[in-house]
Computed example of a mutant assay.
Amino acid sequence: MSEKSVSMPVKMDEVEQGCILYNIDPIVMKYHYEVDYIHSYAQDSPFFEGLAKGELKGSKCTKCGGTFATPRSHCMTCGAETEWMQLPLTGKVHTYTTCYFGGQEFLAETPFTLIMVEWPGVDTLFLSRLIGVAPADVKIGMNIQAKFKRLSQFKPTDVYFVPA
């Protein structure tokens, strides 16, 4: 019984793609890498759903009543479970910093202002960007208002603040 002869390659195909070599010893190089990433927000999903609807959601302890601007499933103080609560869309600047460097998503915006937002009756602060005011004009205690990207990406950066 004879098998049909199949021609097998004897050489790997070469492709014209390369890398940028920065150093030889040790070798340090840069090359493009792309991957699709599947991620679940799990118990934090209602927060991101809220952003897509123009809502800010925090959490409140079911036992001691502690409130958290950055939501969490369990209380930082007593460990009890929390429930979702609506946060106001207006607040105040608690503190701020001007960022002159940023990740790829923020390079076009540098310098940009990061703020910690405070609300009356909420025990923790919320980190976000402040848009529409020069860094020199930002003041602690400044009234601010939440704005949301029209086309939600289901990311924390879907919400930002402007002067109220």
Score class of each variant (00 low, 15 high):
Thr70Tyr: 02
Leu127Gln: 15
Glu49Ile: 06
Ala80Ile: 08
Leu151Lys: 15
Ala80Trp: 10
Tyr160Lys: 12
Ser152Met: 02
Gly132Ser: 04
Lys4Ile: 00
Lys149His: 10
Gln104Asp: 12
Tyr33Asn: 04
Phe154His: 15
Glu16Lys: 10
Leu151Asn: 15
Lys30Asp: 07
Pro9Glu: 12
Ile115Leu: 12
Val6Asp: 14
Phe126Ser: 15
Ala108Gly: 04
Ile140Gln: 11
Asp137Asn: 11
Lys139Ala: 05
Thr82Lys: 07
Gln153Asn: 11
Pro71Phe: 00
Leu51His: 08
Pro111Glu: 07
Thr113Lys: 11
Thr113Trp: 08
Asn23Met: 00
Ile24Ser: 15
Gln17Arg: 11
Gly66Asp: 06
Ser73Lys: 05
Met29Leu: 09
Cys78Ala: 06
Gly54Arg: 06
Thr82Phe: 01
Tyr31Thr: 02
Leu127Thr: 15
Leu151Val: 09
Leu21Ile: 13
Val15Gln: 13
Cys19Phe: 08
Gly102Ile: 07
Val15Cys: 09
Pro26Ala: 01
Asp13Met: 05
Gly66Pro: 00
Tyr100Met: 02
Met142Cys: 04
Gly58Glu: 07
Glu34Met: 03
Glu55Cys: 04
Phe48Thr: 02
Leu151Gln: 15
Val6Ala: 14
Gly102Phe: 05
Leu21Gln: 13
Tyr33Trp: 06
Thr82Glu: 09
Val35His: 07
Phe48Ser: 01
Thr95Ile: 01
Thr97Gly: 02
Ile27Cys: 04
Pro88Gln: 08
Val133His: 09
Gly103Phe: 13
Lys57Leu: 14
Gly141Arg: 05
Met76Arg: 11
Asn23Trp: 00
Ile20Val: 11
Tyr22Arg: 04
Phe154Asp: 08
Ala80Gln: 12
Phe48Gln: 03
Leu127Lys: 13
Glu14Asn: 09
Val117Gln: 13
Ile24Gly: 12
Met29Ala: 06
Ile144Gln: 09
Ile144Pro: 11
Ala136Ile: 06
Val133Cys: 12
Val159Leu: 10
Pro156Asn: 11
Phe154Lys: 14
Leu151Met: 11
Gly50Leu: 03
Glu49Asp: 09
Val15His: 12
Val6Leu: 10
Lys139Gly: 00
Val6Asn: 14
Gly18Tyr: 01
Asn23Ser: 10
Tyr96Ile: 00
Ala69Val: 03
Gln104Met: 08
Asp123Trp: 02
Arg150Asn: 11
Ala69Leu: 03
His74Trp: 03
Val10Ala: 15
Phe48Pro: 01
Gly121Lys: 08
Asp25Gln: 07
Gln17Val: 05
Phe48Arg: 03
Asp158Ile: 04
Val133Asp: 07
Ser59Met: 03
Ser152Leu: 01
Leu151Ala: 14
Lys155Val: 09
Asn23Cys: 00
Gln104Pro: 11
Phe68Ala: 06
Gln153Arg: 14
Ser5Phe: 00
His74Asp: 03
Thr70Cys: 01
Met29Gly: 01
Gly58Arg: 05
Val117Cys: 13
Leu56Trp: 02
Pro156Asp: 07
Gly65Glu: 01
Phe47Lys: 05
Val122Arg: 12
Glu55Val: 08
Ser73Phe: 02
Leu87Asn: 02
Thr77Trp: 08
Ile144His: 09
Leu125Tyr: 11
Leu51Phe: 09
Leu114Arg: 15
Gln17Ser: 12
Ser59Cys: 06
Ala52Trp: 08
Glu118Trp: 00
His32Phe: 00
Lys155His: 10
Ser40Met: 06
Phe126Asn: 14
Cys19Met: 10
Tyr37Phe: 12
Asp36Met: 05
Leu89Ser: 02
